[in-house]
Amino acid sequence: MAGQSPRRQWWAGRQMGIAAIPPMPQRRVGGMNVRGDAIFRSVLAVFAAIILVIIGLMLVMVVTQSSEAWRKFGLGFITGTEWAPPFSKFGALPYIYGTVITSVIALMLAAPIGVGCAVFIIEFAPAWLRSPVSFMVELLAAVPSVVFGLWGIFVFAPWMRNGPDKFLVSHFSFIPLFKGPTFGLGVLSAGIILAIIIVPYITSVTREVMLLTPTNQREGMLALGATRWEVIRYVILPFARSGIVGGSILALGRALGETMAVTMIIGNRAQIKPSLFAQGATMSSVIANEFAEAATTLYTSSLIAIALLLLVVALIMNVLGRLLVWSVARSR
C-alpha cells in the first residue's frame, strides 16, 4: 500500500471501513478546477452587477427626468389635488389615493379568498380535484390583464351596475361609502377586478408554505380530538402565517403596478371622493393614458415624477410588509 497514490489509499481505506480516514486529498491544487471556479465566479458577478446597474440607471433616469416637475412644484406635487395639463397644473394626490385605495380593496378581498382557496386545495379537496383546482388558479395568474379589462367593461361592470351597486345604493346610500350614482365603473369595480388578478399569487404562495406544515403538528392536533377546522385554525394557519403575509406582499406589488385592467375599469377621473362607486385614477393608469400625448417637457416630467412616486409607494409598502413578515416570524 505504501507505493499507492494518496487517492487510492483513501479509497482503499474507505472500502475496508477503516475509521478516522482523513478527508480526500484535494486534486491538483491551483490547477484547472480552481481557475474554472474563478472564471465562473466572475461571470456570475457580472450578471449580478448587470442587474444592479439596470436598477441604478432606471433610478437615475427617473430622478433626473422628473427633476423639472420637482423644481416647479416641490412637495406640492405630492399634496396637490389638481391635474390640469392645459394650465400646466400637476398634482399627484388623486392618483396616489386611487392606487392605494384600489390596492387596499383588492388585498382585503383577495387575502381571505386566496387563503381560503389554498386551505381548500390542501385540506378539503379530494385528491382528484386538487391538481385541476391548483392548475386553474395558476392559469388565472397567466391571463393577460387586458383580458380582465375587457371582461370587466363588457360583463363585470354592467353586472355591478345593475346588481350589487344598485342594491347598495338603494339600501345603504346614507353611508358615504355607498353614495350613488353608479355606472359600474369606479374604484370598487377596479378593486374587485384587481382582487381577481392577485388571488392566484396569494393562493400559490400560501399553498406552498402550507404544504410544508409538519405532519407531526397536524397529527398532534388531531390526536387531541381537534376537528378539521381546529387543525386549520391552530396548526396550519399559524404555520403558514409568514407565507400568507409574503404572498399578500407579492400580490400587493402586483396590484400597485397593475395598469391595463385598472385603466379600463376605474373610470379615469383624478378625484378623491369617499364613495366606492366614484370614479378614480391610479398612478400607473395616468402614465399609460397620458404619456404618449404629453406635449410639454413639464408634462412629461410630471408623469415621470409619478413613476418615481409609484416606485417609492411600492417600496414603502414592501418595507412595511417586510417588517410585518419579520415581526410575524419573530413572534413564533
Binding site: 408554505v209 409568514s242 409574503g246 406582499i249 407579492l250 402586483r254 391595463m260 417586510r322
Partner: peptide
C-alpha cells in the same frame, strides 16, 4: 422549515417591488 419560509418571503418582496414599478413603465 423556518428558513424555507424566509426564502419564500424574501423572493416575494423583491418580486413585489419589481412588479409594481415595472408594469407601469412598460405599459407607458
Amino acid at each position: 422549515m423556518a428558513s424555507a419560509n424566509r426564502v419564500v418571503n424574501r423572493r416575494v418582496v423583491l418580486m413585489g417591488i419589481a412588479g409594481a414599478a415595472g408594469t407601469a413603465i412598460l405599459t407607458a
